[in-house]
């Protein structure tokens, strides 16, 4: 009889796991939270504790011309690099994902190589290479440089989605008489659309945050936000840098929310559902 009144013991392992997860996320988020808090400080320096809250550093951010002009240019470059990456990366991903060639994997690895290369090295190499080609320090050079590092994200997400979706739907369309273009437009493209969108937004995030490539192509009309932030931070220590960082973080979060809303983040992190 006493067995019917068994008391459920707390699962200590589960509690420990939850505490660990919370602590882990707190550890990850703390630096970002601190930056956001500092951006609302009224002090001229990053002092703690913050005594008064203010929007003065957001006003400073708006008034400091290089911040705003470089933010606008960074957004343009991010969009241009994402579009160029789609134009190059989607056909490559589709071809390689369905290729029976024994070299397909090697080509895929080659196209993903920028991910494993030190960015600073890539930046120097691109500066000298594109200058040798006559492009020099130009807007086109910045876009090409960012495309090089954005491309792997498009290829990876599109190829992953395409491989997961299998061949049956395309084969069915072909049997029913659709031509190659019709199969691509009505079957393949809708299948990989989520991957393209996810890859493009992630490519834009990578571009917006890129410093090592942008650093070497920064000129009067080609300065991106991370380069201006670095130059500002080297010579000034007011919380305006926290304000522009917070703004950049908000842009990134909005873009990730769009991805999550439209396709789900699992396409970016390569997780199956």
């Amino acid at each position: 009889m006493s067995g019917s009144h068994s008391v459920r013991r707390p699962d200590l392992g589960l509690i420990a796991l939850k505490v660990y997860v919370v602590a882990f996320f707190a550890f990850l988020m703390a630096p970002i939270v601190v930056v956001v808090i500092y951006s609302f400080s009224d002090m001229a320096y990053t002092t703690w504790p913050i005594t008064d809250l203010s929007l003065r550093w957001y006003q400073r951010m708006l008034e400091y011309r290089p911040f705003m002009s470089s933010l606008a240019f960074s957004l343009q470059v991010a969009v241009a690099a994402a579009v160029l990456s789609i134009l190059i990366g989607v056909p490559a991903a589709l071809a390689l994902a369905r290729s029976g060639s024994r070299y397909a994997e090697a080509v895929m690895t080659f196209l993903l190589a920028p991910l494993s290369m030190p960015m600073i090295l890539l930046g120097v190499a691109l500066l000298y290479y594109l200058s040798w080609m006559g492009l020099g320090v130009s807007k086109l050079s910045v876009v090409l440089g960012h495309t090089v590092v954005s491309l792997p994200y498009i290829i990876r997400t599109v190829a992953a989605v395409y491989i997961q979706s299998g061949r049956s739907q395309e084969e069915a369309a072909t049997i029913l008489g659709a031509g190659r273009w019709q199969v691509f437009w009505h079957v393949t493209l809708p299948m990989v659309r989520a991957g393209i969108l996810a890859g493009a937004i992630f490519a834009m995030l990578i571009s917006l945050d890129n410093l090592p490539i942008s650093f070497f192509f920064a000129g009067p009309d080609t300065n991106t936000l991370p380069v201006v932030m670095l130059a500002y931070q080297q010579n000034q220590f007011d919380p305006a840098i926290a304000a522009i960082s917070t703004t950049q973080t908000v842009i990134a979060v909005i873009m990730l929310l769009i991805v999550q809303r439209l396709t789900g983040l699992h396409h970016i992190i390569g997780q199956k559902r």
Binding site: F216, A218, N223, A231, Q234
Partner: peptide, 9 residues
């Protein structure tokens, strides 16, 4: 025209 940045760049 002013370019903001660092000498090594």
């Amino acid at each position: 025209e002013v370019t903001v940045g660092s000498p090594s760049q």
